[in-house]
Nucleic acid binder design. Structure first.
Lengths: 125, 125, 125, 125
DNA sequence: GTGGTCTAGACCACA
DNA sequence: GTGGTCTAGACCACA
């Protein structure tokens, strides 16, 4: 379900968070469905259960999942997911674009980069 | 000249690097001019000289400054700065846009965000 | 595993880097295997952990090792190692040969020196 | 006569030594001729006289120049120059080639690199 | 004066 | 357990 990249310099729990954010945001994990249990996922990834615990905590705080006592963790509702995803993404992008302005990068250059990303990705599909 | 944000969870040296990257990239520190000395800046920021040393090491590796033995550190040439700044920015933006795609954000939405950033900033000018 | 030469005028961390570059490049440390921990190596060499930390930072930047947060440092992949080793060696050699030209050393002399090195080494094997 | 490269990370005195080694070794400064005075050269290069003093000390130790009390420094005899140049160069090259062997670089590869250096340089002449 | 290296030792994040 | 950051302060090379 998830593959870790040990060359990645980020902490493992952060990678786990990011992978699930994507799986949840693009619908690969449907709203309301159950998340893999902490122990099971830890075993699959050969990782310390604390690490998965930490990742789930983060996902819960960000609103992607919610726990039910004694039953496990579940994917949040579609609307909530969409909302938080957009807000978080909007903030990050705004920050980076503002930074670009400070560095003297022109609007047209940035737009070009984006169009390229989408065009290239489209070709792979 | 520089203000540290102690709320910021990033290490101090990284904050210093980022501040100087902006000051250098947008021309506030002109090419060829001398950087504040390690010791002096350390005192101004009430920080250990080693921490500034580390920041300068990073800036040197990234190509923003170069040291002259026994004299101090100096801001790199205009062309070099422009080149490395663009490359770094391009990479960061590409990464974020790719992430956006994975999260299901549409191209047009992203372009809109950018246009907004520039429009708002333009109004402040 | 590693012996420091205190007569050597180079800084300790640089010696450590060089020793490991050789151990890694010639396969004495196999790709993917774990590096000695910072603290342990520091103790073995009777050196401050910061010094080893610095050496590992350098090795990481050069691509010989990569860190996994909370686990330790690991030797890079075989292909990466081969690539960076060749590039670094090529650059050093080119510099020295160019210097030889400037000093008036003839091409044939240099080639002779090399053949000698390999012949002598071959006899030892 | 000499141009310093402030981007060069080596200390200035070392650059001065290297430049003169080349000028002397390839005959641009003829044996027995007088070296520029410490003060004059320091002024020309906008450099501290101590720095030039240090460079001349080094050149003297290596045998490229010799001082005459009250008159200045002079370029050594042709034979001496040739001898010391070859010995020093031979040692450096041998070390690097040996290192190459340790890293698994083949004899033919090294010879190729050398031939390339000379061919390219020949084209510039 | 300048930066570069190093020690001794603390404290934090991550697994 | 692992590495990463930081302080306080010494000592060295270079200009």
């Amino acid at each position: 379900m998830i593959i870790l990249d040990y060359q990645d310099r980020r902490p493992i729990y952060e990678q786990v968070v990011e992978k699930f954010r994507i799986l949840i945001a693009n619908g690969a994990l449907s709203p309301g469905s159950q998340m893999p249990s902490v122990r099971q996922l830890a075993m699959e990834l050969s990782v310390n259960p604390n690490t998965i615990q930490r990742a789930y905590m983060e996902l819960e705080q960000q609103g992607y999942i919610y726990p039910i006592k004694g039953r496990g963790n579940f994917v949040a509702d579609r609307k909530d997911i969409r909302r938080i995803t957009r807000i978080a993404y909007y903030q990050e992008l705004t920050k980076l674009v503002t930074q670009g302005r400070e560095l003297g990068v022109e609007e047209s250059e940035i737009v070009n980069i984006i169009r390229n990303c989408y065009r290239e990705a489209g070709e792979h599909d």
